[in-house]
């Protein structure tokens, strides 16, 4: 494992921790898209089908368990927790899951590396992860006041994607036969979706003003 991959995993972990910290301590999920969180839960469920059958390393298994557990925990908090759910911005979080899930599933059926069930689910998870942030970005755009923790959550997620691209470039040059077009292209699309957010995030940080995305 190279430094980019490890840093990417750590920023991914940070993003989840920041979000759980916000929900657990402030008891608020204001500005957080339930749609995006449910899509992530589905992403991890589809991707980690091999968690019991395919052992790669202890690190890998533990991280998978953390991402699976935390994604379902966050969904539970927003839907079921009697205090947290009151702060959920239902009015503005209107993105339809199916508009993202269905095209991703069809695409996974059509374009995959191997047409085995687990492989198709893995590919589906890659496509879905690439676009799962969209409801969250739409919600951020509709939210007038983005609090610091929500901004940091999205920032860490974007950083994780950017570091994974560095990881792929590194692996391409250091490992023989390391070519994964599907992973790379969906990963690149996913990272590009953050470009706009990053622009405004850095501007607000540089000018020391509150983050706000233009409608």
């Amino acid at each position: 494992m190279n430094i980019f991959r490890f840093s990417g995993d750590m920023t991914h972990l940070m993003s989840v921790l920041v979000l759980l910290l916000k929900i657990h301590t402030i008891k608020s999920c204001a500005g957080i898209s339930l749609k995006t969180q449910e899509l992530y839960a589905l992403v991890f469920l589809a991707r980690y089908l091999d968690i019991v059958t395919n052992f790669i390393s202890l690190y890998n298994t533990i991280m998978k368990l953390i991402f699976l557990g935390s994604s379902f925990m966050i969904v539970w908090y927003i839907r079921r927790h009697r205090i947290v759910r009151r702060s959920y911005d239902k009015e503005h979080d209107t993105f339809r899951h199916l508009f993202l899930v269905l095209p991703c599933f069809i695409l996974a059926l059509l374009i995959n590396e191997r047409s085995a069930f687990k492989e198709i689910m893995w590919t589906f998870s890659l496509y879905l992860e690439a676009v799962a942030i969209l409801p969250q970005l739409v919600l951020l755009q509709r939210t007038k006041n983005i609090d610091n923790l929500t901004g940091q959550y999205v920032f860490f997620l974007g950083a994780y994607r950017a570091l994974y691209i560095c990881n792929w470039i590194y692996r391409y040059f250091t490992e023989p036969h390391y070519v994964h077009w599907i992973t790379w292209i969906s990963g690149l699309v996913q990272t590009l979706l953050y470009a706009d957010f990053f622009y405004y995030y850095f501007n607000s940080w540089k000018n020391n003003v509150k983050l706000q995305l233009p409608a």
């Binding site: 991959r5 995993d9 395919n54 790669i56 890998n60 191997r114 893995w122 994964h180 992973t183």
Partner: peptide, 10 residues
């Protein structure tokens, strides 16, 4: 093809 090597990322 080595499946382990394919999906060793998270």
């Amino acid at each position: 093809e080595d499946e382990d090597e394919d999906h060793d990322e998270l």
